[in-house]
Simulated assay, not measured.
Amino acid sequence: MARRKKIYEGKAKTLYEGPEPGTIVQYFKDDATAFNAEKHDVIEGKGVLNNILSEFFMLGLGQIGVPTHFLKRLNMREQLVRSCEIVPLEVIVRNYAAGSISKRLGIDEGTQLPRPIVEYCYKDDGLGDPLVTEEHIAAFGWASQQDMDDILSLALRVNDFLSGVFLAVGIRLVDFKIEIGRVYEGDFQRLVIADEISPDSCRLWDVKTGQKLDKDVFRRDLGSLTDAYSEVARRLGVMPNNPPAPGKPTLVN
């Protein structure tokens, strides 16, 4: 059987041509990176956990009417997703101060923000994904004003959903980032949540202890990243049985 055509390989995922036109197979790797890939390791089982957790969140969003690119999970490491044009922005929603906003504004980490704050970064690894304003986005044509209104609405709906889901299992959603895709249906364009939603893209703290259950465990050498992600999956009731060892992508018929 011929190997499927690789479309793109990123830090945490590889994309392959899907079995049907307009589809993509998204393969979750075990690679962990931080500080714009200056720190790198391979964490056994990380891709399996992110795949299953992202499926859980994407399905939940679909159930409340938030459109996503997710179609179905194929196996322990792969998802079938809708092909879309990625808006070249990372959309960041912050509920508590942490990471770069604490450094930029001198706010103590863990401080609850007056309201959810939405920020945008231009997706360019070579530039370090710089923070940009809506003025930059409009001037350079990355998204229209209508797109920005829709993106803001989507981001806040995702925040409401995720905050509730995590709080119900004793986890505080500090912040998260999402990517937005454009899906074209004839002349009609629709914006959808794309990429993934997982502990790789969220900051998650235990409500009582403040224990970090996200990629900061890797960034700051705080222990086992697999244990942290497994705890999130266990609390949400989606812990996989006997996660497989890292391997090559499974070909999909």
Rank of each mutant, 00 (worst) to 15 (best):
R94Q: 11
L162E: 06
R115S: 14
K72H: 11
D125H: 06
I43V: 15
Y96I: 08
K39G: 07
A12G: 10
E17T: 10
G141N: 04
R73G: 09
K72I: 01
S201V: 11
D221N: 12
L89E: 05
D31T: 14
I101M: 09
L152V: 06
D187Q: 11
G18Y: 08
L74Y: 09
T14Q: 07
V87F: 08
A228N: 02
K39F: 14
G164T: 05
Q146R: 10
V66P: 02
F28M: 10
P130T: 06
L225C: 08
R190M: 12
N242G: 02
P114T: 12
P114Y: 11
A168K: 13
Q146C: 02
V217A: 01
V66W: 03
M76P: 00
K208A: 15
A98F: 09
E196N: 09
I107N: 02
D160R: 12
H136G: 01
L162A: 12
I151T: 05
G99M: 06
E55K: 14
K5I: 14
T209S: 15
I86Y: 10
P116Q: 10
S54K: 06
E44A: 15
E55S: 13
G22I: 10
I178W: 02
V174I: 10
I86L: 15
A155T: 13
T111L: 09
G128D: 07
S230K: 05
E185F: 03
F218M: 00
A12T: 13
L251I: 12
L236Q: 03
Q26C: 15
A12P: 00
R219H: 08
F218D: 00
Q79L: 03
S201F: 06
L162F: 02
K39R: 15
H69D: 07
D147K: 03
V66E: 01
F140I: 05
F188V: 14
N242V: 02
L173K: 00
N95S: 14
F188E: 14
Y16G: 04
N253K: 10
V232I: 11
E134Y: 00
L113I: 09
P116R: 05
V25T: 11
V81S: 05
H136A: 05
R219L: 03
I52K: 04
G110K: 01
P244V: 11
V192L: 05
R172S: 12
R182V: 15
P246K: 11
S201A: 13
P114F: 14
T23P: 05
I180Q: 00
I92A: 07
E85S: 13
G164P: 05
P114H: 13
S163R: 12
K123Y: 07
P21Q: 09
E38I: 07
A168Q: 10
W205C: 04
Q26G: 01
I151D: 01
Q79I: 07
C202M: 15
R234L: 12
R220N: 09
R203K: 11
I86T: 14
V118L: 12
N75P: 06
